[in-house]
């Protein structure tokens, strides 16, 4: 008698538990929070619209970008992530099995196994380069990367000794291959990997405020360019490495100076990506349609970047303000 009561009570509580869980799961998605501010803003725009207009509840988790993130999405731990930059996702070429289309044009085609779904471009077009402050460029007459070696002493720090220093790509998982590029181009600089965007930018900011010369890897759109006057060193134009591509999978084979990474970066049509099973479900069809239409402007992101990174405001607050003030810009992304 007592046992059966206990069992039925247990059963009942389980029923309630699972009922509440399934109910809560109905319109839920799980997204990654990126590790650079631009990516966070783009994702926050998507999340804001999904939550406001389409009745979603989105759970967000901080996750470092890189191969680990792709695997987490492929495994279904996360449903989607935002603003992947194709140049930085080389080791993940195997994942998509679709064409990347921007403005009706195919800008890149992927022939992977389709374990990750390409949700569409974000609208942000990124560009990466090495930069020096204008005062340094004028003082030393540096026009291109070829002039860097002559002034490497000026760019040296106590840590690099006789070599110049590049404040390099902060995160190894981003696959910038800074040192490789410097070596291939014969620039006698040492790439310093500082671990986080914040560390790299703080270093550059401090150097700028002290009017010291420095060489910085950075991507645009970025708030740094709004605050400080920087000039690109004009790396050689992007060339693919024919035949043997330069990836981890083929043990970093390289075409020497004929192609990547002896060149600068390609123009990056950034994209959102997600778990194929999640977005194949009929209840998420509208969300998928939204991602196909989303097209955030570089300028809009740059404005929000300034609010967040310079004025130190909360990301959600800034994005909500933008959504409130610019409905004409994003209403057209909504699925019919």
């Amino acid at each position: 008698m007592r046992l059966s009561k206990t069992i039925s009570a247990l059963f009942l509580s389980f029923v309630i538990l699972f009922a509440s869980l399934t109910q809560a799961n109905a319109k839920r998605l799980h997204a990654a929070i990126a590790d650079w501010t631009g990516g966070i803003i783009t994702c926050e725009v998507a999340v804001g619209i999904l939550e406001r207009e389409m009745g979603y509840k989105i759970k967000q988790t901080v996750f470092p970008s890189g191969t680990g993130l792709w695997e987490a999405i492929a495994a279904g731990e996360l449903d989607f992530a935002c603003e992947s930059w194709p140049s930085y996702a080389e080791a993940d070429d195997v994942m998509f099995n679709e064409d990347l289309i921007y403005d009706g044009k195919v800008v890149k085609s992927y022939k992977g196994d389709g374990t990750v779904d390409l949700l569409g471009t974000t609208g942000i077009i990124g560009m990466s380069d090495y930069w020096i402050p204008r005062y340094a460029a004028e003082k030393f007459g540096i026009k291109t990367w070829r002039d860097l070696n002559k002034h490497k002493k000026e760019f040296a720090t106590i840590e690099t000794g006789g070599k110049g220093r590049l404040i390099g790509c902060p995160v190894a998982g981003w696959n910038c291959h800074d040192q490789k590029r410097l070596d291939l181009l014969g620039i006698d600089f040492q790439a310093d990997e500082l671990g986080t965007e914040a560390a790299a930018v703080a270093e550059a900011k401090a150097a700028y405020m002290r009017k010291e010369p420095f060489l910085l890897y950075l991507w645009s759109p970025h708030w740094f360019f709004g605050e400080f006057d920087m000039v690109g060193v004009g790396l050689p134009d992007y060339k693919t490495c024919a035949g043997d591509t330069f990836t981890e999978a083929n043990n970093w084979k390289t075409c020497g100076t004929d192609g990547w990474p002896a060149t600068g970066w390609d123009k990056d049509y950034t994209m959102n990506y997600g778990n194929p099973d999640t977005f194949a479900k009929p209840e998420h069809a509208k969300a998928k349609a939204f991602f196909e239409r989303m097209k955030l402007d570089n300028l809009d992101q740059a404005k929000m970047l300034v609010e967040v990174d310079i004025k130190k405001r909360d990301v959600k607050e800034v994005v909500n303000e933008w959504l409130d003030n610019n409905p004409d810009k994003w209403k057209s992304w909504l699925p019919n």
């Binding site: 191969t67 680990g68 792709w70 695997e71 190894a172 998982g173 990997e193 500082l194 671990g195 560390a199």
Partner: peptide, 20 residues
Amino acid sequence: TPLIGGKGLGLEVFNGLARS
């Protein structure tokens, strides 16, 4: 410490994670 530029084994651990 690799988060602020530390080197050595810690950085290896981080790189291992980033490249899965």
